[in-house]
Design a protein around this nucleic acid. Structure first.
Lengths: 235, 235
DNA sequence: GTGTCACAAAGATCACATTTATAGCAAGAA
DNA sequence: TTCTTGCTATAAATGTGATCTTTGTGACAC
């Protein structure tokens, strides 16, 4: 697992603070603050604050104007697909809503990714997918569906599927899948014994891709996500 | 139309320059440059350069390390869904490849957006969608399919559709649709007289949403995007 | 309303202190 | 010899602070 936590440079921690504060509504849209205020609120120098504000600005979260200050922008203008922002919105009160949104994104992406993969994936990738799918079955049938290895295998399967789409925009969203799956386990929603049809669906995706059956691959992938989607709707 | 062009502040123009240079391969992955070099290459002060590098860093395009300098990262780690990066990749040699990627994203998103809209959209939104769809028919049958009003109506239709999904992550991707449609007209691919089935499909989406038929809405939306997808595949 | 004027705050530059990781070299062990 | 291990010099980012310039806003006068 790559180290996702950013280097312990000053501006990163400040960015993290400000970002989460905005997301959680501590600093609501329309609220204004000057660089000088931010400066001594955080107890750092001008330069650091400016760099942080610049990043937030490039994410559409704030706007910096002369003579006015730094204004928090409404959520409608945020770059909600930015990985950092995705993470921030998974904390606090927003978490469940965010999980819903993310799962809907999966519902859109994974079936299409499977379709594209059926068209483009190499034989090796197909084998790898099938291998991961059968490992899921083995772990699941052993009653280990709620443990770390199952989660990791699941993540690997879906990341590979998205990558196999051959579209880097789709592949770049593997972080979304990772967050959803991890949160699911985290919230205790992952059963020790997953239903058998889940294994069938995963293997179905892999087999359909290997036999280049685009429609079937899409169907199975949809079934996989639908299961989680249903589960989440009940909450 | 909101003003998308950034304020004419110094760091924005430098950002634009550096960003496109990286995207177009002028600065390949792995290439290293120091802040000092960038500084007098661009002829601006250190502060400006630092802010630019921070933004590129938050987009996963460069990495800044002590004692080494600023390293360009491989495309695999870029935030390819960042609106700025999307625009950059639509310039130069990357353009056609980017259009393919974007269309594939549409293929994933729009059918699901239609499905969600059928579940959630208000009656007003349904009416508005149908209105836009019939305007498309009127303009198209009048042989004005390649003109600006048609393009604008088309963009409005799809933006509203994505917004009606009720998922802000999906809605945030309307920029993608706008770019694809605009490029299509720009490249002269939009016929003066679009095929009649295109109007049927747009209206079909609107009507299915109004009658809350999720499956039908998804099907029609897929048909709409498929048409463009086919078209683009022939290039 | 319309102009203009004062000023607050961001934008930009500069100089300098601090930190850290790399590279190079030296000494010792295998 | 060759391969570690450890030290050291130093390049470059990181961080601080002071200062000047620019511009948009609000208020005041007309």
């Amino acid at each position: 697992m790559p180290n996702l936590s950013p280097a312990p440079v000053l501006h990163n921690s400040i960015l993290e603070r400000l970002g989460t504060e905005i997301v959680q509504g501590v600093r609501p849209a329309g609220s204004v603050i000057t660089l000088a205020q931010l400066e001594d609120e955080a107890g750092v120098s001008r330069t650091v604050i400016r760099e942080v504000v610049r990043i937030l600005e490039s994410m559409g979260m704030v706007e910096s104007r002369r003579r006015v200050g730094v204004t928090v922008l409404p959520a409608t203008s945020w770059s909600v697909l930015d990985p950092q922002l995705i993470r921030w919105r998974l904390t606090g009160a927003e978490r469940l809503a965010q999980l819903h949104r993310l799962t809907e994104m999966r519902l859109a992406l994974e079936p299409t990714a499977a379709r594209l993969a059926a068209r483009r994936a190499t034989a090796e990738v197909g084998i790898e997918l099938l291998d991961l799918a059968s490992r899921l079955r083995i772990l699941g049938e052993a009653g280990r569906g709620h443990e770390q290895p199952y989660l990791e295998t699941d993540i690997a399967f879906h990341a590979l599927l998205l990558a196999a789409s051959g579209n880097d925009m789709i592949a770049s969203l593997h972080g979304i899948v990772t967050e959803v799956l991890a949160s699911r386990t985290d919230l205790g929603l992952s059963p020790a014994h997953p239903v058998a049809v889940a294994f069938d669906n995963h293997e179905g995706v892999a087999r359909a891709i290997m036999s280049r059956d685009e429609n079937l691959a899409e169907q199975y992938a949809r079934a996989v996500v639908m299961e989680v989607w249903q589960e989440l709707s009940d909450l």
